[in-house]
Design a protein around this nucleic acid. Structure first.
Lengths: 363, 363
DNA sequence: CATAGTTCCGTAAACGTTTACGGTAGCCAA
DNA sequence: TTGGCTACCGTAAACGTTTACGGAACTATG
């Protein structure tokens, strides 16, 4: 080792005292920041001995690479955003719906060192503005959109900018984007067929907020399924409400107040069954005896009395599929998921309860 | 305008075609990037005429400043992270719980152009590792921690690094950090007093996962409250379970199987009441008649039959308080919140139902 | 006319990384 | 000795912003 080198090292140490980040680490080890970076990132051009020293020093000094610096240079953040709206009850997905989906998404992302964050759009802010503000900044490498609307400007916005994304829910806006959706058509068809087979002729349904596309899909399919049996979907048997317990309560009250109440109903949201049951109970009407009820699975559905006949799906698997579909749309990962479907209607499984187990006497 | 300037402008335009970001905007307007930046950020040293031009061009070209570049320079991200765990059911607090809290937090953050994102720690990963990995990168300017543990290493970690944060939930780990917590002591005291006043002597309680501190707080206060009435908290009347519907179901089964069941129970989690009610119902035991039940408010509680006597709080207000307490710990904002409390026990309000409305006959 | 002050703008450094490029030392073969 | 190869490392540019600094043009004041 020449004197020249040693002097330079001493000089560097003196000049860099109090430095931060990778420079501090380099100074501490008396090597260049380039080598430190390569060592930390597993690049080949570095002696295994020095790599070991670097890694040890990194944990010792508690060094963590700065996110902004890294992503500024690389143009990538290793972050995927899941956009969702807070405060509102537009989606009506309660309890641990999202938590379970997240769990599946993360199971896939963990393989690629990707982090999932939830981008929380306030109910006070327009989702499109939010998207522009937060996302177009280069915040995330990819996006998962929930609460997809029937016409959703976010889709065009992202497609134009070539930001990889997948939507949870179909939209009329078509930019060739990947999407996953629950099989509300299958649910509609199976529910109607099942109820008609048991003799029901006056069948009511619920529909969610006008913005969300699933309402149209569901209502339309119900109408067609009924038509196939020679029946019509009557307009006053389509109930709207907030997608929560109180909404379900109100629906039952309205339904019972009808001159000629329906003998069956299909509930599109998860949580409304609770309020619906309660209002029936107060009126002395029992599901499965006086009226047939079909709904969606939720952790409570199992504990309703009588047990709710409902459609269930694995939210964790849905999350996995969402992640794989998104990654297959990202150049950096697409090779890992050659046969992830770009669009998929996710099936739901019928869980037989007792809430629809009676036959309507035929006249 | 001199020829020199015009030539330079032409040259710049030619050289910068295809540029991105603020450079592209500057080139388009034929002014320097410094001026563009000042104009966009509302700095004083810029002509109002040019500022107007810049803003117009920005929206026209859809320019959004790059997050990494900005925060690299400023050392600030304008992002606050709310750390929560996915997939697990440790807290037993579902989506609705957090959504409502978020809504309050955002109401405050909106005033300061701060964005809230949820940092989702996978159930597969240790929360401490997660914190180091994601947060120490300089990802967020401040943090809100949920699912605070009895001994929580995250607190020391953040305190050492001077990262502003507030925890939702007390911890034994004390680094002088701000925290907010629900008043489980008040709930314990009021519940016990209420039940004892109605003649109950054998009172059961539930407790959550051992990691979370509230279990200790709650159990301890119940014990002391009982002692004040000359009663003891029997060990086999302390029930543990997963904090969900199924857990509540199991508790009821276990409770009814006791040789001498208690005449009252206090449920610490929100969702367990549903399963608890169901198991009682199956056994022909009616809350409010055969056993007294006190629980926590949830949107379902109102629709249980008979209505659950429970403790409620405004989650939105809690979110507001969380935000204000956090901001008062951040140098850049503390002046706005001079009297936000650093620590606060958040009160809960008793909602009288019918689930505990009976008197135990005295012997 | 000289000076000082104001208004506005351009220049360039800085933030913390990653990485293309070049260079040195050692080794081996011709 | 020369040349080439390998293994490793240092240098410096680049990513997209913000901002301290200085300077030009103009106005006001003496």
């Amino acid at each position: 080792m020449s004197i020249g080198i040693r002097r330079r090292a001493d000089e560097r140490r003196r000049m860099t005292v109090g430095m931060k980040g990778i420079r501090r680490l380099a100074q501490h080890l008396d090597i260049s920041i380039g080598t430190v970076s390569r060592a930390l990132n597993g690049k080949p051009d570095v002696n295994e001995e020095t790599r070991k020293r670097v890694l040890e020093a990194a944990t010792e000094l508690g060094y963590v690479p700065n996110q902004s610096g890294r992503s500024l240079r690389q143009g990538t953040t290793n972050i995927i955003g899941f956009m969702m709206q807070t405060g509102t009850e537009i989606t009506g997905q309660g309890d641990i719906f999202f938590m379970s989906v997240f769990d599946g998404v993360q199971a896939v992302f963990a393989r690629h060192k990707l982090d999932l964050v939830a981008l929380l759009c306030s109910s006070q802010e327009d989702p499109n503005d939010y998207l522009r503000r937060v996302v177009a900044r280069g915040f995330a490498d990819g996006l998962i959109l929930s609460a997809t609307q029937r016409d959703d400007p976010r889709i065009e916005f992202l497609a134009e900018r070539n930001i990889p994304f997948v939507t949870l829910g179909r939209s009329l806006t078509d930019a060739g984007q990947p999407w996953l959706d629950l099989d509300f058509e299958g649910m509609a068809q199976a529910s109607i067929d099942r109820l008609v087979a048991r003799g029901h002729r006056r069948i009511a349904i619920t529909r969610p907020h006008d913005d969300v596309n699933l309402g149209y899909i569901f209502v339309d399919r119900c109408r067609r399924a009924l038509a196939a049996h020679g029946l019509t979907l009557e307009e006053d048997l389509i109930f709207r409400s907030t997608p929560n317990e109180a909404g379900g309560y109100q629906i039952a009250r309205d339904l019972l107040a009808l001159e000629e109440p329906p003998t069956a109903i299909v509930l599109i949201n998860e949580t409304i069954a609770i309020g619906f049951y309660q209002a029936l109970s107060e009126a002395g009407v029992k599901p499965g005896r006086d009226i047939a009820v079909i709904g969606r699975y939720s952790p409570h559905a199992h504990f309703l009395s009588p047990p709710l006949t409902c459609f269930r799906l694995s939210l964790r698997d849905l999350g996995i599929a969402l992640a794989e579909t998104l990654l297959s749309a990202m150049p950096a990962f697409k090779d890992h998921y050659p046969d992830a479907p770009a669009n998929k209607v996710w099936p739901m499984e019928l869980v037989e309860g007792e809430s629809d187990s009676f036959l309507v006497p035929q006249h």
